[in-house]
Design a protein around this nucleic acid. Sequence first.
DNA 1: CCTGTAGGTATGTTTTTTGATACTAAGTAC
DNA 2: GTACTTAGTATCAAAAAACATACCTACAGG
Lengths: 112, 112
Amino acid sequence: MKYDFDMKNLCPATFSFQVIGGKWHLPLMAILSENETIRYNDLKRRLDGITATTLTNALKELIAHGVVRREAFAEVPLRVEYSLTESGKELVPLIEAIVTWGGRHMPEIEPF
Amino acid sequence: MKYDFDMKNLCPATFSFQVIGGKWHLPLMAILSENETIRYNDLKRRLDGITATTLTNALKELIAHGVVRREAFAEVPLRVEYSLTESGKELVPLIEAIVTWGGRHMPEIEPF
DNA sequence: CCTGTAGGTATGTTTTTTGATACTAAGTAC
DNA sequence: GTACTTAGTATCAAAAAACATACCTACAGG
């Protein structure tokens, strides 16, 4: 998402929102939060339907924002492990709080 | 954002995320949270750069999700007031928590 | 040599979201 | 009757995000 309006006091909001703002970022973080570390192809399998390009981009963004860590091991075949950083782990309960809110208020809209 | 993957246990997440997921939804809620009620054109002026089409769509989505209320008064010229519902007000501190997180962790990425 | 695995990249297309521009209705003020 | 206001709508164009497909490197197994 590209922002061009002035965000003097919303700037941290923009930052936060960019972290959770991609289509796959939230599911991705959910899976990462359930695993100490996880490998690229395992992640890809768990995120059913994601393409390699999109997964790679999402991971790069999360890494650039400091919430995900990438560790490559010089093994054969190559092993690459992804995990949440401390900053990323801090974000998880906040996301969960918003999800809990969703759980409480979704029924008001469309009963299920 | 359109989701097509299976979200059995992420469904409230999808809901929550759709609420805050548009480019203007967060700024819009921020302004709504600062005013008891606010009129369409005032909102438009405060959200510098938004087009009528986009503002109208964003408001419709927020209303459909139950976080914003629209009240039209049969005056001349027509007056329409927007405000947060109770459910919308509950969401505000949660969003703020995520923004606070952003404020704490943004500096780690790019000093300012 | 051919195939398979892991972790991607390159290139182009489609889908989704947002924006630009013009226009509308109803009434008041001039 | 012309202009101005509010709160939008309609139509089309542009931009952004995601997807599809093919391909790459390095090594192992057969």
